[in-house]
Simulated scan of single mutants.
Amino acid sequence: MSTLTQNEQLHLDSLNEIENSPQLESQCSGTELDMPLSIILPEEYNESWEGVRFSEDMLSCYVRFYELGAAWRTVGTLPDVKGEFSLINFNDALESSDPGTESGTTDFQREFLSQLCPIDRTPRSGAGIQTYIRMQADVDELELWYSDIADIGQSPYPPGFIKLDIGYCEYLKALLLTKGTYGWQYLFADISLARRDFLDGANNLKNMLQVFPELFPDRDYSSLRTRLEARL
């Protein structure tokens, strides 16, 4: 393996934390490296992405793993917590089809859907949860959008998508804490988790914040706790 960057090593260590924890039942994969982000040109994948550029922050924080992911759940007497993530390298992400422009009901929605590329998904569980990066030209930082249940988001955007208030680098940093706990992305979105249809998801996050400080005592979960409390 080529020499890992500091951020790549952090994410590999985090994966090892999941795999080596006796309190978690897990399936983990991913160590091979793919091409660096600096040589990937979006317009070579889709001519409509001419002018899309990755920020210097993205170039520095990017993890080159071909795929890095895990599906896991707590075992034994611990409160039930489940999670999954699978980071996709941008070479594959940009070749992936969009979420389906035919589902858009307006020209704006169809254009929006055509701009989305998956960067994180849940292939082991088949839950269909994905995080996308929005390929827009001439913006300082590319947006991240989360897709889970249908009843999120608001006009003029299509249902089922909600914008995250963090960028790509912050997403990777948060993943080190959450380990892909289902629904963690809602902690970084403008949404209330007090809704009845979010009951299971909110409980999963509550249990995460009860269990993870014990499983991973070197990590600080105070910021996530604050975000969850603000959404309940």
Rank of each mutant, 00 (worst) to 15 (best):
L24H: 00
S26A: 13
S48Y: 04
D98Y: 11
S96R: 13
M35P: 02
T77D: 15
G69C: 05
G100A: 12
T101F: 12
F65H: 15
L41V: 05
L33I: 06
N46Y: 00
A71I: 10
E50C: 02
G30H: 05
S48G: 02
G83A: 07
C28Y: 06
D57T: 09
N16Q: 14
L41K: 04
E25A: 10
H11I: 06
E43G: 01
L15S: 13
E8R: 09
R53K: 14
E67F: 11
L59P: 00
P79Q: 01
D34G: 14
T31Y: 06
S48K: 08
G100V: 13
S21H: 14
P36Q: 07
F85Y: 15
G83Q: 06
P22R: 11
S97I: 13
A71C: 10
P36D: 07
F90D: 00
Q27W: 13
A70N: 10
K82V: 04
E95V: 09
E43W: 01
C28K: 09
S60W: 01
E56Q: 03
S103V: 07
N91T: 13
V75S: 03
G30P: 05
S55F: 02
E67L: 10
Y66C: 12
L68V: 05
C61V: 13
V81A: 01
D13R: 07
R53A: 12
E8C: 06
E8M: 07
S55K: 01
L10G: 04
S96P: 03
